[in-house]
Amino acid sequence: MAKNIMALFQYQDDFLNAARKLKASGFDRISLMTPIPMHDAEKIAGLDKSPVRRFSLIGAILGGLSGFAMATACALVFILPTGGRAIITFPPFLVISYEMTILIGVLSTLLGFHIVSGLPAWRDKPYRMETSIDRFSLVVGFDPDDDPALAEKIMRDAGAEKIIQVEKPE
């Protein structure tokens, strides 16, 4: 198992340059860690539209249907006529399904977040505390035919502040 190399950058343009160059040199297993959300970093990581939106849509639709179904089922299980209204009463049941649309939509978006992001992940991974403050860090993993020295050189040239060998698997 090859070691991973982790580099810390002080400037985000250096960091992005390094990442782009590594990509261009054929290093595919890189992960970028930033203290703030950065669109450029996401682009380099090849992320465009997140599948989370599917979870939201499906959850919302299911929620809406299940809301109406729940209200109808509850009204039919034990028929209690009230106020001269119909048993399956559309206007109030639509309010219920509106709320359920949102409730299930939110919950399934949450589920989607956990599935897509891979969190919670409490196992030990390459990480430096400075990343949550003001450093941008890059972790490069190597395939057997990759040259770790080349990656290190690219990062150093780009202006890496610190380069560390890490044993932990990404």
Binding site: A45, S117, W122
Partner: peptide, 17 residues
């Protein structure tokens, strides 16, 4: 923090969610 590290994928998913 769910073991948050601030990787691009995490930020991306969080932003969308």
């Amino acid at each position: 923090s769910f073991g948050w590290r601030g990787t691009a994928r995490e930020w991306h998913t969080l932003g969308w969610a």
